[in-house]
Design a binder for these strands. Structure first.
Length: 725
RNA sequence: GGGCUCGUAGCUCAGUUGGUUAGAGCGUUGCAUUGACAUUGCAAAGGUCAGAAGUUCGACUCUUCUCGGGCCCACCA
């Protein structure tokens, strides 16, 4: 054995061996009684993995643990096309070359992005391998695989036929810079300082941050209890505007806060979510004055063609000239919705989109968690999950982008009738025989990834693993992804005729890990340039050290900062294990002893059989301690307590086994008598048990030591987990 | 405005259903050692567990409040 553990010469060879022998594939020989399964949250295929993805080590620990318990164990990998995210990244690349998405035909652009993504995927998969993840690569799936798309189509059709998908013209969060609409989750809110303009509307003054939308006003509103304005309610007042005289109706609505501004509000149903709802209540017309390109349209008169920001300035200038501005509060701070990607203001615009009716789906998804059919770890995330579903609104799944699954809906150019299919094209309208044209929009990525557990298992012939044992992911996508998987998973199973709720849910346990920040505690992001590639650290410290560092000293669900001292400490720990093995090897060679592989039960028997003369007290106590640590690690892993598992293993290995027991054993081994042979049996047997307990956490170094020291025919990865019975 | 989370040794963080002298890594200070250990071992210094009140035989751990970070949600024009 080398003097120092050299991870680089070991890891690649061992991983290849595991993969070639098919250990990652749950065949019959790995047990058939009980099943264990995890679906890897499919990383975005548009970029290499960042260090946070290494947290999936938790899934590998669970997978390896359960494999060693003798269960038929599946960990299924995949990748997500990440619709808008990917197109955004790709458009930036085009920009660098002086091009834009409009320079290409839809199909051409799609192919280009597909090439780009497929290239990235290879690198990403290599990263997962380097971390030692025991994924069943033969079953890897991509969200744009044809068989996956088929399932997504079918689900959409089901939802449509059940009235759970509908098309409606509503206000949509629209980014005029990226040219697409978003769901509510994709809008960020940022605090901005914008002037609050107090504008004269005839006899009234009202406050607004958006004077340029005034051309779309279809009413002004006051609070019904506001005595100041009672006399105006229901009346039409004449107002002076930048485009001349006009008349406008005054309505009463409780939405108006008399304390804010002057207690008078202009209602612009086409450009504000509140106003839209007020418009619905009062039957107000919708006048759209901003187009999808972010410019004012003909309704804005001479301001037509100006961008919103320009128009605001021009309108205010004009108003000031005409004396229509009462005053301006320049220090007004409020929160506005911005595009989560480009950070430009979101423009609420009226659009026809496909919406999923969420309430019926959400109700069941809440019940399953309340009834503990699905358990969420750590528990405090239950509240977050339920809170989200409680207040859920219908889900806009239309995206005006080309990278993704094109919506299988066709519209008749003649009569305007829509038809939803399961993917097969429609040429002629069923009603009027007019020409049918497919919706140019694609699905929100999460609509497809929300079906991931079912879709991946169905298409790989593994529905026997549904529901999966665990869904493990970052808490940041609990609402985006986990909640939607629960809703869609249950729905699909219902449609498939599955009755038992326990079989409808997509997974039994949800385990949520925290985020990994940079060493200064800042979130890693490409724009900050502080993204760390896990491979750098794997090279430097070894995969085992990186893995161990991520779970050691971190409470489940808590964020952590990358810590170089911790990584270094864990690298030393792998080296410590290595040297413990070297000590045993020296003893073995020098005294020509044979390593033993006694089980805990056999060790117990040994301990009972021999008296004080034949066996050292330190050996006896080691047997007890081994038994204890085995019980403890088994218990902790079953409770998803990786932190304590790691800490206990570290302390046991270093401070019990090495510091105390190995030192004691030296005294015995030097005697070269019967007792010393017993010592060697206990030493090697308990060390092997330790290796097994450590294997899920540090698979490479333990496997290598096992091969060198014990040289068995089997590999540690499929050895049996130490049992107490 | 609501919710979640954190505030523990100089630094980064644990603290496993409340239980004897509060832990780790790194750092600091001694001593020992090249003997399995590009070291490691032994030992030491260092904490009023943010603050206050309460529950309890007993609180870092439970409750309430205050202060101070972080995150998330919400339609303030």
């Amino acid at each position: 054995m080398d003097k120092v553990y050299n991870n680089k010469s070991v890891e690649e060879r061992i991983y290849k061996n595991w993969e070639e022998k098919g250990y990652f594939n749950p065949r019959e020989r790995f047990g058939n009684r009980e099943k264990f399964s995890i679906i890897l949250p499919p990383p975005n295929a548009n970029a290499p993995l960042h260090f946070g993805h290494a947290m999936y080590v938790i899934e590998d620990i669970l997978t390896r643990f359960n494999r060693m318990l003798g269960k038929k164990t599946l960990w299924l990998p995949g990748a997500d096309h990440a619709g808008f995210e990917t197109q955004f990244v790709y458009e930036k690349k085009l920009q660098e070359k002086g091009k834009s998405r409009f320079d290409y035909e839809r199909e051409e652009l799609y192919e280009m992005i597909m090439d780009y993504v497929q290239n990235n995927r290879k690198g990403m998969e290599d990263q997962l391998r380097r971390l030692g993840f025991s994924l069943d690569w033969e079953k890897k799936k991509f969200t744009l695989d044809e068989d996956i798309i088929k399932i997504v189509y079918k689900t959409f059709k089901w939802l449509y036929d059940d009235g759970l998908v509908y098309r409606q013209k509503r206000l949509v969060n629209y980014c005029t810079f990226d040219g697409t609409g978003f769901s509510d989750l994709e809008v960020l809110y940022e605090e901005r300082k914008n002037p609050l303009y107090y504008i004269k509307y005839g006899p009234l003054v009202l406050a607004t941050t958006r004077p340029e939308t005034k051309f779309g006003d279809t009413a002004i509103a006051v609070n019904p209890d506001d005595k100041r304005y009672k006399k105006y309610i229901g009346k039409e007042i004449e107002i002076e505007t930048v485009l001349g005289k006009a008349k406008i109706k005054v309505i009463a609505d409780k939405m108006v806060d008399p304390e804010f501004g002057t207690g008078v509000v202009k209602i612009t149903p086409a450009h504000d979510f509140n106003d839209f709802e007020a418009g619905q209540r009062h039957n107000l017309p919708m006048v759209q004055v901003i187009n999808f390109d972010g410019k004012m349209n003909e309704k804005a008169g001479k301001f037509e063609g100006l961008y919103v920001r320009q128009a605001r300035k021009a309108v205010v200038d004009e108003m000031q000239k005409k004396g229509l501005i009462d005053h301006i509060d320049e220090n007004y701070v409020h929160r506005i919705g911005v595009c989560y990607k480009c950070k430009n203001p979101i423009e609420p615009l009226p659009m026809e989109q496909w919406f999923v009716k969420m309430e019926p789906l959400a109700r069941k998804a809440m019940e399953t968690v309340k009834n503990k059919d699905i358990r969420i770890y750590p528990e405090n995330f239950n509240k977050l999950y339920l809170q989200f579903l409680e207040g859920i609104r219908d889900w806009n799944i239309s995206r005006q982008i080309i990278w993704g699954i094109r919506i299988p809906a066709y519209k008749c150019e003649n009569c305007g009738e829509w038809e939803v299919t399961e993917g097969e094209p429609r040429e002629k309208c069923g009603k009027c025989s007019g020409k049918m044209v497919q919706d140019s929009d694609t699905f929100d990525t999460w609509f497809s990834s929300g079906q991931w557990p079912y879709a991946t298992l169905k298409t790989t012939g593994g529905l026997e693993y549904y529901p999966t044992s665990v869904m493990e992911t970052g808490y940041d996508i609990l609402r985006w992804w986990v909640a939607r998987m629960v809703m869609l998973g249950i729905y699909i199973q219902e449609k498939e005729g599955v009755k038992d709720i326990k079989k409808q849910i997509p997974f039994k346990d949800v385990v949520l890990h925290g985020l990994v920040n940079d060493p200064l505690g800042k979130k890693m992001s490409k724009s900050k340039g502080n993204v760390i590639n896990p491979l750098e650290l794997v090279d430097q410290y070894g995969a085992d050290a990186v893995r161990f560092a991520l779970v050691y000293g971190t409470a489940l669900g808590n964020d952590q900062s990358l810590s170089y001292p911790k990584l270094e400490a864990m690298r030393k720990f792998t080296n410590k294990l290595w040297n413990m093995a070297r000590f045993i090897e020296f003893q073995k060679n020098e005294k020509e002893l044979k390593v033993a592989e006694l089980s805990i039960q056999e060790l117990r028997v040994l301990s009972k059989k021999h008296g004080e003369k034949d066996m050292w007290q330190s050996d006896r106590s080691m047997i007890e301690k081994t038994e204890k640590i085995t019980a403890e690690i088994t218990r902790l892993l079953n409770n998803y307590d990786f932190n304590h598992s790691a800490q206990n293993l570290y302390d046991f290995a270093w401070h019990e086994f090495a510091d105390i027991y190995i030192e004691e054993s030296k005294k015995s081994l030097n005697n070269n008598d019967d007792a010393s042979r017993h010592t060697f049996d206990v030493l090697t047997s308990s060390f092997l048990i330790l290796l097994k307990l450590l294997h899920p956490f540090m698979p490479f170094v333990t496997e290598e030591i096992y091969d060198l020291l014990y040289g068995g025919e089997e590999d540690l990865i499929i050895s049996k987990w130490p049992s107490l019975e």
